[in-house]
Design a protein around this nucleic acid. Structure first.
Lengths: 191, 191
DNA sequence: GTCTATAATAGGATAGAC
DNA sequence: GTCTATCCTATTATAGAC
């Protein structure tokens, strides 16, 4: 019962606020003081809910990944979409609901946290963000050049779209998601 | 005459060491103390040669960009290479001589330094790293789909290869440069 | 569960002697 | 041009009262 209460706990508030900061400013760029101040608690109070900064970071990434997994997996099944439509829809979903700095996030996962946690997080990350794309490529393997496996393709696709997910990054390039997917599928060379 | 002396000045030592640290660990991840320690000078001494950390960072990026510009520009002209061969050679050159964390670098350029410097650096960066690719696309525009201009294509190409330039990043994906260029040009869909 | 107080550290930067 | 000494600030983290 108490689990289903609508009341937002301090722990949840911390997680929500930390998500915004970590995903936008990275691990080093985020301070526990700032998070605490923003939600109106003292900084030491944060250490009652989380062991330290790293465990808070991990909790945020686990939360974010579980949301991504649930939603990304359901998109191709939702309606009958072809490969290109699915990629476009999934990428749009990512940019709308996860407008993160994935480049920074992938870097932080490797450099800012302990090695064991780093490996565990990478698996969670892979399952949440990469597997849905790998599954999609598998489902349409008849249309895809057979030289490379779906995991590698998913990995590459994610690296390609990652810099476009960050809203702060729009200054660089103004390719639409449709164009990015088109280039990924068909290349830039004339037929 | 004194400019051409083989003796390595302290200023040059600082620049060389700072390059390694900034490009691998990013702006925040690099400390002036560490740089000084590594070359056997005191940290305050560094402030005799550079106004502050930011101006050192800018000097490093200017140095790095001028090297890139010189070499990248010369590759397509060097021998008569077609589009694919040029892209492969230029990308190999980049990974060999600039094995940097470009994602972190691009992020630092926008977030860690003053706005004026940021804009100036972005122009230098664009001229050094993007223009050679844009020129190449222009030179082979007959083979390229005409929907997008060469600047946009160069930008996109650089974003695609950037995560593969960082040697620490190899764990993720093991696509070869040849495969990356092939995918970029021809896409992943069967003919 | 939240607070105050404070420790411990690290980092950028300056003053001033040599 | 390089050093020692030192300041200032920001940050993570802990101790212990309420």
């Amino acid at each position: 019962m108490s689990e289903n209460m609508a009341r937002v706990t301090t722990r949840q508030l911390i997680l929500q606020t930390a998500e915004v900061h970590f995903m936008r400013d990275g691990y080093k760029g985020t301070s526990t003081r700032q998070i605490a101040k923003e939600i109106g608690i003292t900084q030491p109070n944060l250490y009652h809910h989380f062991k330290n900064k790293e465990s808070l970071y991990i909790a945020v990434l686990e939360m974010v990944a579980s949301k991504a997994l649930e939603d990304l997996k359901s998109i191709p099944a939702e309606v009958q979409l072809n490969l290109e439509e699915s990629l476009i829809k999934m990428t749009h979903y990512l940019r709308k609901t996860h407008p993160y700095n994935f480049s920074v996030m992938m870097n932080d996962m490797k450099t800012e946290i302990s090695q064991e946690s780093s490996l565990a997080l990478y698996r969670i990350f892979q399952k949440a963000y990469l597997q849905p794309f790998a599954d999609l490529f598998d489902a349409h393997s008849d249309q895809i050049r057979s030289d490379y496996d779906s995991q590698l393709l998913a990995n590459h696709f994610f690296l390609v779209i990652a810099p476009y997910m960050n809203p702060d990054n729009l200054s660089y390039s103004r390719l639409t998601i449709e164009a990015i997917v088109d280039f990924f599928l068909n290349g830039v060379v004339k037929d």
